[in-house]
Design a protein around this nucleic acid. Structure first.
Length: 816
RNA sequence: GCGAAAGUGGCGGAAUUGGCAGACGCGCCAGACUUAGGAUCUGGUAGGGCAACCUGUGGGGGUUCGAGUCCCCCCUUUCGCACCA
């Protein structure tokens, strides 16, 4: 008998499937549609084990859904613009394009070796001019609709990547670059931004999508809605005002000073001559600090007095105006009213600089004494003029109303979310399709001139300037308005722009006169299910939602959410439970080696078996042996003829066989549907274990036996596609197993006919009665329970005060 | 500090959502087969007594006939956010 040899069967079937176009996609097929998307990879060189962990289970689900009769759209592509290509160019003198396409070719071969059933004819590669032409076109539409704008501002800058970053791409307390972990600095640059804040409110609404709580919370926190008031303070000596944002208008009477961010434009105007040197020095000092230093120092707050005063909108009291870097320019209005009695930060600052603390919300039991610390809770308003005696919650609205009446304020909402900065000072990205003319200003490249091609043979000097700036041929152009000399924008788009619309393009990636095939979109969008890592919660997934809503408002699509369902897989860890890391090469598991050693079926199945898909977990080089044995066992089970049997199986045995089969069909299907691949595999193992034993009985003589074996192979097919195809052929069935219907199960046959009755006394198991029919009467159960010797011993001399029967499970005798 | 998730044998993990804790697999132990095997097969495997039983799902309380599951308090770990006014 042949041995299980994945090296022989896997390449054979992969070739056959490709030749037959087994996974070609027909969008018009008359079946229910299922658009199943997984986050496409960056072509970094080779698929690593994390990729396999991410891609193998969805392939199993896609295969399962096809067998269930869905028309599954399961595309794949490459998020191909990005820094590593450029860094490879700098380091090894390689052309980014060549490097990228070579990597893509290799990774496609790896996907094939996995047995992945992607619809490759719909592949999208974002660095392909045919793709980025439309990235640029979309940029122009955003521009035309006021959703893309240019602004000079201090931006987050990564000194290693030599480019600016979006706020989302700066991570952690010490503000490091998401890509290379280098601490970011600030740089003043003129940059393009997308107006995502326009959608802040709508992005908080998740009612139309079924996303994990975790992601919804991350996005909600990231958007950071906070409601309060804007309050206008008049200045004492200038005809100017300072607007502050506060969530606590009820504490307005407790404001004892104002604080401006050092970058606030009014600072230099209001500072008195006397204080000017101090203030200027302070601003200088703040500027020199990197963001990290500034935060590290902030345990101790610093600031200086400007010499200026503002007037309290109700009392007219003079409030000194300070500058302090604990107030941030990019949140709210960059100015605050400081209420030391009711805000911890203000309290710390006031304590340090000897500024007055005025209690206006009485804590419970407060008798007018000095506070030891800020009281930030609710309470009754005091020392607040006409508002005295109000509960602070009601006071908020009362103060807002009073301010509004005087034209000195209004209710306001602010968000932590910032507009999305998309300019990158790098080469390997989609050029921003804009032209700057000294006489006409900035204008889009005419749409019939797209794409603005990336020039080849560009110099890469790590200067921090866009490499495209150094390409004269690229930079010089003519103004689309006046025809005179003009300059192209030499920045490129953040690669997250490329990935913010790729699932639209998948539908018809070759359509040449439009960004997307709307007829197909009508039927196929939104995406039914999206699988990918949680690390994209506040980046890609937020951008994707923003894009969809923006495109809707431009009339380009008619839905509001890109992905109905979302599933986040976990992280594959090294054998020691730590993260796999290139700095510890021994910790890294190379998928190609695993395929070489065990075959793709074993490897992918082990990745599914290792634990719940959303949890991830540590790799085990021993554990994979178990799956290897499992497949060998299936192989031998199917190929080895049963021993000669005589006689007839009992009716019970036949029913058991059927029950196992139907139950397994039901469970494996449900598990795959819910991404519970680990238990799906476990069910298959149990089924096999049962079948191996049953093979020793006369059951093998029955037609039901053949059915049971056939079913085993069908149920394996999504998970181990190659071995299933081979065994299917061995069973004499017709090609391909992957075009078969997923077997139906009969709930009646799957249901247990008998059960083991558990008998408890006072909640403790004292006996069991096996093989009771499920419809056994309660009286019979009680009789059996009380008849048990063990039970008799336990209840002797005690009173039975209750006896509960949970049908098909247990009885509990309560005694005292 | 705020928010979220999690804590079950030697290990990865199951548990129909309040009803037999530890499915399945790894590892380990014993045995069989084999010239040999890191192959294969059979049996065992939470801990303690080795029998009746007792104890066990991070710790402590509670609800319940019954709690890994529900409620309260605490501990630990991981992740996210962090001067956001």
């Amino acid at each position: 008998m042949r041995k299980y040899n994945p090296k022989e069967i896997e390449p054979k079937w992969q070739k056959r499937w490709a030749e037959d176009g087994l996974y070609n996609f027909d969008p018009s097929a008359d079946k229910p549609k299922w658009y199943f998307l997984t986050m496409f990879p960056y072509p970094s060189g080779a698929l690593h084990i994390g990729h396999w962990f991410m891609y193998a289970p969805p392939d199993a689900k896609a295969r399962y859904l096809r067998m269930k009769g869905y028309n599954v759209f399961f595309p794949m592509g490459f998020d191909a613009f990005g820094l590593p290509a450029e860094n490879a160019a700098i380091k090894h003198g390689l052309d980014p394009k060549t490097w990228t396409y070579e990597n893509i070719a290799y990774m496609r071969r790896q996907f094939a070796s996995m047995g992945a059933s992607y619809n490759w004819s719909h592949e999208v590669i974002t660095c392909d001019p045919e793709y980025y032409k439309w990235t640029q076109w979309l940029f122009i539409q955003f521009y035309k609709h006021g959703l893309a704008y240019r602004k000079k501002a201090p931006v987050d800058w990564c000194p290693k990547c030599n480019t600016s970053l979006a706020r989302e791409q700066v991570k952690g307390e010490d503000r490091r670059c998401d890509r290379c972990q280098t601490p970011v600095t600030k740089k003043d640059l003129e940059q393009w931004l997308f107006r995502i804040t326009k959608y802040a409110e709508e992005l908080l609404d998740f009612s139309a999508i079924e996303w994990p709580e975790r992601v919804r919370v991350l996005q909600t926190d990231w958007i950071g809605r906070s409601a309060g008031a804007e309050i206008i303070f008049k200045l004492e000596s200038y005809d100017e005002t300072i607007t502050v944002f506060t969530t606590r208008p009820d504490t307005l009477f407790g404001a004892t000073f104002l604080v401006l961010a050092p970058e606030h434009p009014l600072v230099t105007r209001i500072v008195t001559a006397e204080q000017r040197p101090l203030v200027e020095a302070y601003i200088e000092q703040t500027k020199r600090l990197t963001e990290i230093d500034r935060l590290a120092l902030t345990r101790e707050k610093t600031g200086v007095f400007t010499g200026g005063y503002a007037l309290h909108p109700f009392t007219g009291e003079r409030l000194p105006i300070w500058v302090a870097d604990y107030v941030l320019m990019n949140y709210g209005t960059g100015a605050i009213m400081s209420v030391p009695a009711h805000d911890e930060r203000d309290f710390a600052f006031a304590s340090k600089y000897g500024l007055p603390v005025k209690v206006v919300i009485a804590p419970e039991g407060w008798n007018g004494e000095q506070l030891e610390a800020a009281y930030t809770g609710a309470g009754i308003m005091v020392a607040s003029g006409e508002f005295d005696g109000l509960a602070s919650e009601r006071g908020k609205q009362a103060i807002i109303d009073a301010l509004q009446e005087r034209g000195l304020g209004k209710a306001a909402v602010t968000y932590r979310l910032h507009d999305w900065l998309i300019s990158r000072q790098r080469y390997w990205g989609a050029p921003i399709p804009m032209v700057h003319c000294s006489s006409c200003g900035t204008h889009p490249v005419p749409e019939d001139q797209l794409p603005v091609l990336l020039p080849e043979g560009v110099q890469f000097l790590p200067t921090g300037e866009s490499p495209l700036k150094l390409s004269e041929g690229f930079r010089r152009t003519t103004c689309p308005v006046c025809g005179g000399e003009a300059e192209r924008d030499t920045d490129t788009c953040d690669t997250f722009v490329d990935s913010s619309w790729y699932w639209f393009r998948y539908l018809d990636p070759k359509i040449s006169d439009k960004w997307m095939n709307s007829a197909l979109a009508e039927k196929w969008l939104p995406v039914d299910e999206y699988a990918g890592g949680i690390e994209h919660a506040t980046m890609h997934l937020l951008y994707a939602r923003f894009f969809t809503k923006a495109l809707r408002d431009m009339g380009l699509v008619n839905h509001s959410e890109p992905f109905i369902r979302l599933f986040n897989q976990g992280l594959m860890l090294a054998e020691d439970g730590q993260k796999m890391s290139k700095s510890r090469p021994e910790s890294v598991v190379n998928p190609d080696e695993q395929v070489d050693m065990y075959g793709a079926d074993v490897f992918r199945t082990y990745l599914m078996f290792i634990g719940p898909w959303d949890a991830g977990g540590p790799w085990s080089s021993k554990g994979i042996e178990g799956i290897n044995r499992f497949y060998k066992k299936i192989w031998n089970f199917v190929l080895e003829p049963p021993p000669a049997a005589s006689g007839e199986p009992s009716a019970e045995q036949v029913k058991e066989l059927e029950r196992w089969m139907h139950k397994t069909i039901a469970r494996v299907g449900q598990d795959i549907e819910h991404f519970r691949f680990n238990t799906a595999v476990a069910r298959l193992m149990e089924y096999l274990n049962y079948l191996v034993k049953a093979k020793e009985t006369p059951l093998t003589l029955l037609p039901q036996w053949k059915q049971a074996v056939r079913t085993l192979v069908l149920l394996i097919a999504p998970i181990g596609p190659h071995i299933a195809e081979e065994l299917w052929q061995e069973l004499g069935e017709s090609y391909s197993v992957h075009q078969q219907r997923w077997p139906d199960f009969d709930p009646v046959l799957a249901a247990d006919e008998v059960f083991t009755l558990v008998i408890q006394v006072n909640g403790k198991v004292r006996d069991r009665v096996p093989n009771l029919p499920v419809d056994v009467s309660e009286d019979e159960v009680k009789r059996l329970a009380l008849d048990s010797q063990n039970v008799k011993r336990q209840i002797e001399g005690k009173d039975i005060i209750n006896l509960l029967y949970v049908p098909k499970r247990l009885v509990n005798i309560v005694v005292r």
